Computed example of a mutant assay.
Amino acid sequence: MIAIVDYGVGNLRSVGQAFTHLGVDVIATDDASVLLRADGVVLPGVGAFGDAMNQLRVRELITPIKQYAAEGKPLLGICLGMQMLFDTSEEHGEHAGLGLISGSIKRMQGTHKIPHVGWNQLEKSREHPLVKDIKMGDSVYFVHSYYAIPDHQQVVVASVDYYQEIPAIVVQDQVIGMQFHPEKSSTVGLQLLSNFIAFIDRGERGEEHDCITGHRLI
């Protein structure tokens, strides 16, 4: 079962429907005990970094999420959820993140259009199970004004070019971030979510399987 963190921020239904389409049991919850029992956890997010972190704090979800990651279980952050995996953000002041990946979140600079909205082509930095069957130039959908600057470049699995290099997929052990919206990225996004499911299943069984079966609509 995949648990989507429900903290009042993010489009839970579209994320849940994408996983349901792939044949996965999925539930949206703010219950820490449910999150800790899940096979995989998804942290979605839209809006401002500080507000989102405050919602996690008010709902007493920061410690359970950190505990889940410390236990080596797969955690996927999407869009703002990816940014929250990092140490700090400068969005509307200085804010502490979850500190699961070393680095910071900064605002994009330049005279080009900000926010970065629309489709952009992935460029794989290295091979990883998360980008299995993803080809160079496959496009995904972005909506963001801030981007991650990891302390260690090796966590970057794929990036995009938007007048500068923007990390698009980051992975550190079982902690994964996607700056774009896979649930809005058509067949490429579904492939990436399917890869995440296989990543969960491989971790549970010690080998690679196609997917987790079963359905539950949120």
Rank of each mutant, 00 (worst) to 15 (best):
I2M: 08
I2Y: 00
I2F: 04
A3F: 02
V5K: 00
V5R: 01
D6Y: 02
R13G: 11
R13D: 08
S14I: 09
S14H: 01
Q17Y: 04
F19E: 07
L22M: 10
D25Y: 11
T29E: 11
D31N: 15
L36F: 02
A38Y: 07
D39I: 03
D39Q: 14
V41K: 10
P44S: 10
G47W: 06
G47S: 11
A52D: 09
A52P: 01
M53N: 09
N54H: 13
V58I: 15
R59Q: 13
E60K: 15
L61D: 10
T63L: 05
T63C: 02
P64F: 01
P64S: 08
I65F: 05
K66S: 07
Q67D: 13
E71G: 09
K73Y: 06
K73D: 01
G77E: 02
I78R: 02
L80C: 08
Q83D: 07
Q83P: 04
E91F: 08
E94V: 03
H95R: 07
I101L: 08
S104R: 15
K106G: 00
R107C: 03
M108R: 08
M108K: 09
M108Y: 06
T111G: 07
T111L: 10
P115V: 08
W119Y: 07
N120R: 07
N120Q: 00
N120M: 05
Q121M: 10
Q121I: 01
L122I: 01
E123R: 15
K124C: 14
S125R: 15
R126W: 06
L130D: 06
L130N: 05
V131C: 01
D133G: 00
I134E: 04
M136T: 14
M136Y: 01
G137P: 05
D138C: 11
S139V: 11
S139W: 01
V140M: 08
V140W: 01
Y141A: 10
S145N: 12
Y147C: 04
P150M: 02
H152F: 14
H152K: 15
Q154M: 01
Q154G: 02
V155P: 10
V157E: 03
Y162T: 03
I166F: 03
A168Y: 06
I169N: 02
M178P: 03
M178V: 12
S186I: 04
V188E: 04
A198W: 04
G203N: 15
R205Y: 13
E207V: 04
E207Q: 14
D210P: 06
C211F: 13
T213Y: 12
G214N: 02
G214Y: 03
R216N: 12
